[in-house]
Design a protein around this nucleic acid. Structure first.
Lengths: 209, 209
DNA sequence: CTACATTTGTGACTATTATCATATTACATG
DNA sequence: CATGTAATATGATAATAGTCACAAATGTAG
């Protein structure tokens, strides 16, 4: 697993010296699918770096409604946790392992030091923020401009792209939660997509055609 | 105006040496109300730092629909423009001067150098990203969870807070655009709020009670 | 004051989404 | 294969928002 980490850190474009420090100072964390990593209103002293698997990051409001924000995948860092920690704030979001995942947890107090010494690390942080930002923009686009049927289709296609599989193993209920609508609505719209021969429906499974 | 800049830079918590460099290397840009600073699909080589006035930042899609994202006010930096420039990407958004505004434009190529040398500058960038991030989350909250009447009231209250005034000088049409709905809907909901005695309505002006 | 453009008000209708009630189907387990 | 639970399907109805048409009002320039 250390080798995989090395490979990923190189892939991001970090220099040798930094890679060695990261490998020395962090710790490995394995989480199994659907296990929560960060919950709304809790804070952590580490910045997670995804080695393998996928984290699903969501926003949750006071009443427990949640909207999907973005995915974190192999090689991506969760830059949000930085300022969340620097500024001593509570996290406004919730991260759940979408699949089994392996993370490298980096102690927060080292971040600033690395930012001052390594150009590649500054780039990692800024890029990470920007990537999240862009994805949030897409989320806003779809919530603000798209109707539920389009959003649902986009959701299915995004899933397909990120997992590489044509099958989404979720119930209508779970999909409805991620899109912040009701199960009945999702069932109806999926049925419509099925009639249009864009998906095939099974129990706990949707296949994109 | 240089004094005001100095004051603001100190207020952010930057150290003397950095402040001097910023003052030496940047240039002043004045823009008058409603003038666009950044347009969708265009990129700039400077990072703007707001000295006075307010910038309204919006997301625009291909069909010209737009959603309000957040405001940038005195002392705030537009960190988004950094990676937008570093990664050679086009800006996915649009910034308009809400009122007359004075900006200090910092050449992008200095950013990385400052980030390596000044702790306070790293903090400025990270905080700036985080602040925008938090505001985007609030925007998502309101679009995803709130109904139009609540969003309208929130919009009016936010305006009140940011301008300190109880009067919003906008037509129903303009408000509708910022909330991504139609003029008719805004007129109707404002009328309802008026009946509830929460606002008073005039031509091109709404007063929050 | 008059003419005109812009802004605002409202009724009528449609579209989309939410909600409730109630079937029906699929799967796991004994 | 009988049975129970979770998942899915679907009709009926309501709430919310969008659209169109047109009327009324407000402010401005001559």
């Amino acid at each position: 697993m250390r080798d995989r980490l090395d490979e990923i850190l190189q892939g991001i474009g970090l220099e040798r010296a930094l890679i060695d420090e990261i490998k020395q100072q962090g710790r490995l964390l394995k989480i199994v699918g659907e296990q929560p990593l960060i919950s709304t209103g809790v804070k952590s002293g580490d910045m997670p770096l995804v080695i393998s698997g996928t984290l699903r990051v969501m926003r949750e409001d006071e009443m427990g409604n949640e909207v999907f924000l973005y995915y974190l995948e192999g090689g991506e860092a969760c830059a949000m946790s930085i300022s969340c920690c620097l500024s001593n704030q509570l996290s406004g979001f919730k991260a759940v392992a979408e699949t089994d995942a392996v993370l490298w947890m980096v102690p927060m107090h080292l971040i600033d030091d690395w930012m001052s010494r390594f150009q590649s690390f500054r780039k990692l942080i800024v890029d990470s923020y920007q990537a999240r930002f862009d994805e949030l923009m897409l989320t806003i686009d779809s919530i603000a401009f798209m109707k539920m049927d389009e959003r649902l289709m986009k959701y299915l296609l995004d899933k397909k792209q990120s997992s590489g599989s044509y099958e989404i193993h979720k119930s209508h209920e779970q999909i409805a939660n991620e899109l912040n609508t009701s199960r009945v609505v999702v069932s109806r719209l999926l049925k419509k997509l099925e009639r249009e021969e864009r998906v095939a429906l099974y129990r706990n499974r949707v296949e994109v055609l």
